[in-house]
Measured scan of single mutants.
Amino acid sequence: KGCNCRRSGCLKNYCECYEAQIMCSSICKCIGCKNY
């Protein structure tokens, strides 16, 4: 399942991608994603 966080840059544990240690991709559609 994808993540669509808006404010944290996908760097907080409530973002599913970050919590699962998945990098930003087409699945993880965080706005302004900084989780490289």
Rank of each mutant, 00 (worst) to 15 (best):
K1G: 02
G2V: 07
G2L: 03
G2D: 00
G2M: 08
G2P: 13
G2S: 07
C3V: 01
N4R: 08
N4M: 11
N4K: 05
C5W: 02
C5M: 06
C5Y: 00
C5D: 00
C5T: 03
C5G: 01
C5Q: 05
R6A: 15
R6P: 13
R7V: 09
R7N: 07
R7P: 09
S8C: 02
G9I: 06
G9H: 11
G9L: 01
G9M: 06
G9C: 00
G9Q: 05
C10E: 12
C10A: 08
C10W: 03
L11G: 10
L11Y: 01
L11M: 12
L11N: 06
K12T: 07
K12V: 11
N13C: 02
N13R: 07
Y14M: 14
Y14S: 12
Y14T: 07
Y14R: 12
C15H: 03
C15A: 04
E16Y: 02
C17T: 01
C17E: 03
C17Y: 01
Y18A: 11
Y18F: 09
E19G: 11
E19W: 03
E19S: 07
Q21H: 06
Q21A: 09
Q21T: 10
Q21P: 10
Q21G: 12
I22R: 12
M23V: 09
M23Q: 11
M23E: 13
C24K: 15
C24P: 07
C24R: 04
S25V: 02
S26Q: 13
S26W: 00
S26L: 02
S26N: 10
I27S: 12
I27L: 09
C28D: 06
C28H: 12
C28V: 03
C28L: 01
K29L: 08
K29F: 00
K29E: 15
K29D: 14
K29A: 14
K29M: 11
C30K: 06
C30N: 01
C30H: 02
I31M: 13
I31T: 14
I31Q: 13
G32W: 04
C33R: 06
C33S: 09
C33T: 08
K34W: 12
K34P: 14
N35P: 10
N35S: 11
Y36T: 14
Y36W: 12
Y36K: 05
Y36N: 12
Y36I: 15
